[in-house]
Design a protein around this nucleic acid. Sequence first.
DNA 1: GGGGCTTGGTTCAAGTTTGAAACAAAACTA
DNA 2: TAGTTTTGTTTCAAACTTGAACCAAGCCCC
Lengths: 171, 171
Amino acid sequence: MTTRWLTPEEQRAWRAYIGAVLLVEDALDRQLQQEAGMPHMYYSILSTLSESPERRLRMTDLAERLKITRSRLTYAVTRLEKDGLVRREDCRWDKRGSVAALTDEGMRVLERAAPGHVETVRSLLFDRLSPEQVGQLEEIFTAVGEGFQGDSAHATADEVPWRRRSSKSCS
Amino acid sequence: MTTRWLTPEEQRAWRAYIGAVLLVEDALDRQLQQEAGMPHMYYSILSTLSESPERRLRMTDLAERLKITRSRLTYAVTRLEKDGLVRREDCRWDKRGSVAALTDEGMRVLERAAPGHVETVRSLLFDRLSPEQVGQLEEIFTAVGEGFQGDSAHATADEVPWRRRSSKSCS
DNA sequence: GGGGCTTGGTTCAAGTTTGAAACAAAACTA
DNA sequence: TAGTTTTGTTTCAAACTTGAACCAAGCCCC
């Protein structure tokens, strides 16, 4: 079949999207690098851990939530561990497993960084959008995200929920 | 002033956005790496050059359009030049200047990769959105992008249009 | 026309990401 | 239960990004 090129409307939307996303991510990274000495993804790791039961999560679960590869996560956690913000623990139930746990120091750093981060997110994004647009944003990206169920690089077809090991913390 | 935390709606939108954007970029990178042997940004460089007069652009102009640092662009162009897809030329009007020019080979590679890329963009994004949502997407990210006029890391306050050198190709 | 500031671009080191390969522990299976 | 496959994680090298430092050429202004 012959290529379905983008319509003018789609092209405008795509360009606006591509450009703005880049700027937002750069701004976020810069702000967090300044105020917390880490890129946005590392902040997200801390943040995700902080919201998990007992502030810990298995590596694979953490990677899945953040939508990054295990390899990338391993590197990041190693760095955060060096900084004393995260601690690696063995998983009691599965000797292969490794659990990342947020330390008290990590929690403090996170709490200190959070206000500035939220303020940045606001000023970059939400301050520029109407309430309706916020709703539209959610709907659009929820739809886009759903396109990755079962065909992502991180989840194979037979990886159905009831066959996965407990994704609760195995503390 | 006390932190204005995100409302539940904003939080949902933010999470959907963060997750989906990551997945989209990864998918784009993977697809292009497979079919064209380069990441998305490198494809964008070729694409931008192909649409410019005489298929060439000064480094700074190119960096500005792509919203990346000059440093990053220098690295990328060096690689693309090694692959024979881009050629660096001296700018006649400004001896400091360097011009990136798309080679015929670069044009061929771009044309070969374009259909698959567009198909991917479609399947990731536009196939999942209604026409209204495409319009909303454009409006949202146009608004977000406009937040970066004059305060980005790449443009300083006094960098007003009429003081900038011609941004046309100086071929 | 000789400072001194700005601009265009590259370089360098340090940090991060990628994908494939390596391993070890678990889970199947015959 | 031995053999095979799968799963959880790390390791490694190569690629990419970042930001600061650098250099050269234009610009300004006395």
